[in-house]
Design a protein around this nucleic acid. Structure first.
Lengths: 130, 130
DNA sequence: AAATTAACGCAACAATGTTGCTTTTGTTTT
DNA sequence: AAAACAAAAGCAACATTGTTGCGTTAATTT
């Protein structure tokens, strides 16, 4: 069986997620790490964290891919079927863990996962824009 | 004022969309066009069509970007606030124009657009898999 | 302390998207 | 119908993002 190790790079990436309130792209993570490790290493760490359900992947309307670690202190399992908000002004993506859409599906579809991303202005930008 | 022209390449791209029931990636469009024009030209045509609201952009969970032209014969304006379905088996993305999610937002957010993508098995794959 | 192997670094590559500049071509004007 | 105008195309070069192979390093177990 394959065991996962706690390397310095992985710990550093997790710290970056811990500190950030918003979802981060690979490039943003790399910048925050100040090149303490290789680009490829970050990709591989992200792969492992995704696999272990510690983070989840969000792809924005514009095609950019971001990653986030949710705070789900009380839950045992990481639920990523919640909504995300993408701000058109500051480009930050945040998890809206309370927002759960309801919908009616046509027959003959089997839904395994949902991805619900809303975009517009986040509270921060909404206030400073008026 | 900038006027848009009906070039052969643009017409060909529109025909490809017309024929296709599913959303298409840049690469898929290029293949169907049999290299009648440059890669860059396709990108620029897609930009124009997006700008003119003739097609819309869908970015899948996996980070791939696709484009689709909806059939909205009766409407004057192109509405792209509908749901999409992404099949995990055949990777096709289809518009679910009838599916409109309802949800409750926290205060202080201004929602301009929504992107609701469901993934799982489409009717075609659901039937052939059992 | 030695053994094991997960993870890293590096180089190379692939896919996707962008930009600048010249040429072509669709459309309007004369 | 020809000339004028400018949108769009072609081409080359580049930027970004993500992937793969392989030898080396280092976390964990024995």
């Amino acid at each position: 069986m394959k065991t996962t190790r706690n390397t310095t790079a992985k710990t550093a990436v997790l710290e970056v997620f811990e500190k950030s309130k918003t979802a981060l792209s690979h490039t943003e993570i790399q910048k925050q790490l100040n090149d303490i490790c290789d680009r490829v290493t970050i990709y591989r760490i992200l792969d492992r964290l995704l696999n272990d359900d510690i983070i989840h992947k969000i792809s924005n309307q514009d095609g950019t891919v971001k990653y986030a670690k949710c705070n789900h202190s009380h839950q045992k399992v990481h639920i990523h079927n919640h909504a995300h908000f993408s701000c058109e002004n500051c480009n930050e993506i945040t998890c809206l863990e309370t927002v759960k859409p309801s919908y009616i599906m046509p027959h003959n579809y089997k839904v395994n996962e949902i991805n619900f991303t809303l975009s517009g202005l986040c509270p921060k930008c909404l206030n400073s824009n008026i």
